[in-house]
Design a protein around this nucleic acid. Structure first.
Length: 331
DNA sequence: GCTATTTGACCTAC
DNA sequence: GTAGGTCAAATAGC
């Protein structure tokens, strides 16, 4: 968490803040609405150039925060589709493990140790827990009651698991205290055709790991002004399907407690199909993000602890304006 | 008939 | 031994 990566984080945050500053200047020039002043075009070009430089530096900094040299910002690095290979190689999540036992069909039944990252998704009403689509095709293969959890956990795998060998999977579980909030844990990268198609359109896909490192999680905790947790940062996630087994409609009253404020629907974080919804992504130390009095958004990533990779690493950007990400194309 | 979902059973990790 | 994750047969929907 703390330690050597903090300097990189600070530098990255500063760099991105600079980008934000430049973007705002650019917006001021472009959005003035008045007659374009002579030379404004050149100034804009200069600003764009500055932005590019800052972004490049940010990418470099982000890369320096990698685990085992893997970039934290896949988009900036071209969004490689290849998942981590340490213990979660694409399409062969268990193949090399000598301890792996296989079932009758030759599939290893060892519990997955694929890279994973989780998010939280908020829906605007309990009715919205209908087909939730994050852009990938998922097939539900199981549901399990979890000890101590009020709601069951649903298990999904990529529809193209068999046809294209895509081993991406995800778990969806309604948050106990908030029936409108779902924890979504992704395992493995998509290696199917969908991955390529979607990565080109948006690299902020939640079903592709923001970090390309194994055992990493990313958190996006959006906060409102005044430090009060105030979900307002929508992420790219359409409503996903989740069996309302334990999510009775009697939970609907919680909808009234929703205090979200979705920003522009033009944001890449908002699916066109769900502009009425607002999703909150946080995980792992999301509460830490909430403890900080940040104006807009905070990214937080840490390695999960489900592997032998013991040391934690966090990656944080703050403060950042969501609009920056809207336009940057990096997230 | 094909595909997706449900659900109990089985298996593995802890 | 227990809890979590996956399998696969049964079932439902198109």
């Amino acid at each position: 968490m703390e330690g050597s990566s903090s300097d990189g984080r600070c530098a990255l945050a500063a760099e991105l803040a600079q980008v934000l500053h430049v973007v705002r200047q650019l917006e001021a020039h472009l959005g003035g609405g008045g007659v374009a002043a002579a030379g404004a075009d050149e100034r804009c070009r200069a600003l764009v150039s500055s932005m590019r430089s800052s972004i490049d530096r940010s990418i470099s900094i982000a890369r320096s925060c990698c685990v085992e040299g893997r970039p934290m910002l896949p988009a900036a690095a071209g969004a490689p589709e290849s998942p981590p290979s340490a213990d979660g190689s694409a399409g062969s999540d268990h193949g090399s493990d000598s301890r792996c036992r296989t079932n009758a069909t030759g599939q290893c039944k060892k519990r997955k140790t694929l890279p994973k990252w989780s998010t939280q998704v908020r829906v605007s009403s309990v009715q919205d827990v209908g087909p939730l689509d994050d852009g990938f095709s998922w097939r539900k293969y199981g549901q399990k009651d979890i000890l101590g959890a009020k709601y069951p956990r649903a298990y999904f795998r990529c529809t193209h698991r068999h046809t294209q060998g895509c081993h991406a999977s995800k778990q969806v579980q309604r948050v106990d205290g908030d029936p409108l909030l779902f924890d979504v844990v992704y395992h493995g990268n998509h290696t199917c055709a969908q991955a390529g198609a979607r990565s080109a359109a948006s690299v902020a896909e939640q079903s592709q790991p923001p970090p390309q490192t194994a055992q990493e999680q990313i958190t996006v905790a959006a906060e409102g002004e005044g430090g009060v947790t105030h979900e307002q940062q929508p992420m790219l996630m359409r409503p996903f399907s989740f069996t309302a087994t334990a999510a009775g409609t009697d939970e609907g009253g919680a909808a009234g407690a929703l205090h979200q404020s979705c920003p522009s629907t033009a944001s890449p974080f908002v699916s066109p199909a769900t502009t009425s919804e607002c999703q909150v992504y946080e995980l792992g130390g999301g509460s830490k993000a909430g403890a900080r009095n940040l104006p807009n958004i905070e990214w937080f990533a840490s390695k999960t602890t489900n592997s032998s990779m013991g040391e934690d690493m966090e990656f944080m950007l703050q403060p950042l304006d969501p609009d920056f990400f809207d336009n940057s194309g990096y997230f």
